[in-house]
Design a protein around this nucleic acid. Sequence first.
DNA 1: TACCTTGAGTTGACGGTTCAAGTCCGAAAG
DNA 2: CTTTCGGACTTGAACCGTCAACTCAAGGTA
Lengths: 163, 163
Amino acid sequence: MSTEEPRWLDAEEQATWLAMIKMITRFPAALDADLQHHAGVSLFEYQVLAGLSMRPDRTLRMSTLAEFSACSLSRLSHTARRLESKGWLYRIPDPTDGRYTLAVLTDAGWEKVVATAPGHVAEVRRLLIDALTKTQYKQLRQISERVNDAIGHEPCPGNGNGC
Amino acid sequence: MSTEEPRWLDAEEQATWLAMIKMITRFPAALDADLQHHAGVSLFEYQVLAGLSMRPDRTLRMSTLAEFSACSLSRLSHTARRLESKGWLYRIPDPTDGRYTLAVLTDAGWEKVVATAPGHVAEVRRLLIDALTKTQYKQLRQISERVNDAIGHEPCPGNGNGC
DNA sequence: TACCTTGAGTTGACGGTTCAAGTCCGAAAG
DNA sequence: CTTTCGGACTTGAACCGTCAACTCAAGGTA
């Protein structure tokens, strides 16, 4: 791609780039390590359980849950099998349309989320919210939304469907 | 941990949190997919090669390179073996201190970086720099640095040494 | 009824990362 | 000089995510 001359990053841009890539590498790793240590679940597993726990009926279609968790259906399916084997959720075919599968949080799964959430929130607060001024996290929200828009919906890269 | 009452996130904080976690999930994935598609290397492999290419002698100690790439020594070691087998770098014991290992970029590795960089920079520009105002990426830099400071150096979580 | 298509979800193989040893070098202590 | 120790890698197994192929349900067509 690109037969045209690249526009290199200037010092300001490169400094932003290096600082940002460092943050987006280490921040989820730090949260993951904290959850792994205190609750024995990965950040991704927690997000799946938390996604279900936010629903009044603690139920979501697999595909909806995959979109919420920003992951491929394949990844979610493997993870759901592991969470199912731990008794935190179960899966049933959608009674109204057998093509869909519903993931349902069990009571044990709910308890897990309730037990885990406070420590996780405290860590998010420590590493993100309290580290920034109120102005800064308003800025961060706008920045994140802009970048998310630039990425677009691109369901393409690696989500288990053939693009 | 935490017998005390948690301070939950308010609406503003939660919106920031959700937007940010979406960004830090999808942004590296988008860059990785682009590199994988156009150059056949992962984002992490590219960072390793690029880290070496920035040095005048194209050489770094493994431990320094691991810190630069924000990864565990174990991960870097496995990756270095794969990159070595592709002829893009080689490793030698540090002549001045046999406890260290030096990773050295080969000419082929240099060529790979030179061939890959323009497209990669263009993608970074598209997804990040051009998506933001100049003010915003100055803000992003400061935000990233603050979060990085909050995370600290924490060599602990998962870097192949016993904490 | 039979057939084709589409999309959701699952599965198994493969490749990369983590984790827990283990190796090796050099410095410090005896 | 030898022993001990810590730090810098390395290695192999276990684990997890990706990719491609597959199953299954529903709708459309005839």
